[in-house]
Design a protein around this nucleic acid. Structure first.
Lengths: 215, 215
DNA sequence: GTCTATACAGGGATAGAC
DNA sequence: GTCTATCCCTGTATAGAC
């Protein structure tokens, strides 16, 4: 089910969800233990079960919140880099590099990508409606937002994409999925230099598909 | 470690590896049980442990064999569709559609993609040398082979890719990863019609990047 | 009344013994 | 081929503490 959870101190609830994101991201759903989550949160195991009825509900709750957080973070990156564009190519490269790092970096705040990996690993065991909600709050929302930015850039004559949705999809494939695949969605580190190289090559290819013919 | 395993009837060994591919692909590494694998193979659990010392070795052995098999299957698809090309666009689309189906289809022989999903889920727990061997025998081999085909097509004037390796990478991103992502690497079914649409759009984009300027 | 700490019941897993 | 030793995990129960 989607999101339940009883009463209790909200601060404890937040600590539990943060800890669950870390442990689920590090170990995956099956390997993660409720004991480890409780320890990471600094609370008793009984408290975990007081806030969440079972492991699955906790996992799905954390997954939903995480995808919304990540979509918002990416939305901020888009606004910063694609809002006021002077050098389109450089702006696209900067956005691509920062998005890849935000999602895939194993270091600081890397639990976002790690939890996404755990979700992808468990897709076959996630109820269809929850999976749809996760997609809609996360990856799909980001793609819609990127398409809106491309639409605006097209109206300013900086892009010549006839289908902004398709352009957004292909931009993500060319500048993000190559890095994601290489790093196995953040499980392995990828050199920042290589990520920058892939992003630049992807942007150049993207501009050859959807770039405005003249400047 | 990579591949050990004792003696025993080779036919039993093959049955065990086939069964392990099915069960690991269906359940994932952690959930899959040695009992279920033995039952699927139609042998005793003792026989399984007679051929493979433990669960991890069995999994890694099956993973390595599987990636080599899949690379060969894709190689055959490439030879069939990219060997004698008359209509380049159509050949690329046909190859893209058939590769996606071969890797991701959940039905017949779909254990290839399912096992790949299980491996990706366990990447953090796989020894680095084994993971490298898996990559080199599977995905990387296919990419090298695709680059060689693109090189040949370039020499015939059908493609204008200055870097065949980069072209192969971008072709795979544009025509395969979009479908793979949508279906979560085969975990969810994707309509054949949608796969064909994505493949065609990806090929068109690819040809705008790397296509020969005139025919 | 919620939290901590610990102990425990039940099920399932691997791996080995008979 | 079955049977079993041993361990781990989820979820609950039993204590007491703020």
């Amino acid at each position: 089910m989607a999101a339940t959870g009883g009463a209790g101190r909200p601060e404890k609830r937040g600590a539990i969800m943060r800890a669950a994101a870390v442990v689920f991201g590090r170990e995956g759903y099956v390997r993660a233990g409720m004991d480890a989550i409780a320890a990471e949160a600094g609370v008793s195991k009984r408290t975990v079960y007081n806030h969440f009825p079972d492991k699955e509900t906790l996992f799905l709750s954390v997954a939903l919140r995480n995808s919304a957080e990540l979509a918002q973070l990416i939305g901020e990156l888009m606004a910063r880099h694609l809002g006021r564009v002077v050098d389109l190519r450089q702006s696209l490269i900067d956005f691509a590099v920062e998005r890849a790092r935000a999602v895939l970096s194993a270091g600081e705040r890397g639990e976002h990508g790690a939890l996404g990996r755990a979700i992808r690993a468990e897709v076959a065991n996630i109820p269809a409606d929850v999976l749809e909600a996760w997609l809609d709050a996360g990856p799909a929302a980001s793609q819609r937002e990127l398409a809106a930015h491309f639409e605006a850039l097209g109206e300013r004559g900086l892009l010549a994409a006839e289908d902004a949705g398709l352009a957004a999809e292909q931009f993500t494939l060319l500048t993000f999925h190559g890095i994601a695949e290489r790093s196995f969605w953040g499980a392995l580190p990828v050199a920042g230099e290589e990520a920058a190289r892939i992003a630049a090559a992807g942007v150049d290819a993207f501009l050859r598909i959807h770039g405005a013919p003249r400047r």
